[in-house]
Amino acid sequence: MTDTIRWGVLGAAEFARNHMARAIHAAEGAEFAALATSSPEKAKGFQAFAPGIRLHDSYEALLADPEIDAVYVPLPNHLHVEWALKALEAGKHVLVEKPLGLKAGDFDAVIARRDATGLLAAEAFMIVHHPQFQRARQLVQDGAIGDLVLVDTVFSYDNRDGGNIRNRPETGGGGLPDIGVYAIGSARFVTGQEPVTITHAGLRFENDVDVLAQITADFPGFVYSGMVSMRAAPRQSLAFHGERGVLTLTCPYNANVFDVASLRLETEAGTVVTERWPAVDQYVLQVEAFGRAVRGEEAFACPLEFSRGTQAMIDMVFAAASR
Rank of each mutant, 00 (worst) to 15 (best):
I179V: 09
G180D: 04
G180L: 02
Y182S: 05
I184M: 06
I184S: 03
G185V: 00
G185T: 04
G185W: 11
S186R: 00
S186T: 14
A187C: 10
A187L: 02
R188H: 12
R188F: 10
F189T: 00
F189H: 09
V190G: 01
T191G: 01
T191V: 08
G192T: 03
Q193F: 05
Q193C: 10
V196A: 07
I198L: 08
H200N: 14
G202D: 15
G202C: 04
L203E: 06
L203V: 00
R204L: 13
E206T: 11
N207H: 13
V209Y: 04
V209T: 06
V211G: 07
L212N: 12
T216W: 13
A217P: 02
D218F: 03
G221N: 14
G221Y: 11
V223M: 10
V223P: 02
Y224D: 00
S225Q: 15
G226M: 03
G226H: 07
G226E: 01
G226L: 07
M227E: 14
M227Y: 03
V228L: 13
S229F: 02
M230F: 12
R231A: 14
R231I: 07
A232F: 01
A232S: 13
R235D: 14
R235L: 12
R235N: 13
S237W: 14
S237L: 12
L238R: 03
L238D: 05
F240S: 04
H241P: 04
H241I: 15
E243H: 08
R244F: 05
R244S: 15
G245I: 08
G245F: 05
T248M: 12
T248A: 06
T250Y: 07
C251D: 14
C251R: 05
P252N: 03
P252I: 06
Y253S: 02
Y253E: 07
A255E: 15
V257W: 07
V257G: 04
V257M: 09
V257F: 10
F258M: 11
F258D: 13
F258R: 09
D259L: 00
A261E: 04
A261Q: 06
A261D: 11
S262V: 12
S262K: 15
R264H: 12
R264F: 11
L265D: 01
L265I: 03
T267Q: 14
T267W: 03
E268A: 15
E268H: 11
A269D: 15
G270Q: 09
G270Y: 10
V272Y: 10
V272I: 10
V273E: 15
E275D: 13
R276C: 09
P278T: 08
P278W: 01
A279C: 10
V280Y: 11
Q282V: 05
Y283T: 01
V284D: 10
V284S: 09
L285A: 00
V287F: 10
A289N: 11
A289E: 10
A289S: 11
A289Y: 09
F290E: 03
F290Q: 03
G291K: 10
R292E: 14
R292L: 08
A293L: 11
A293R: 12
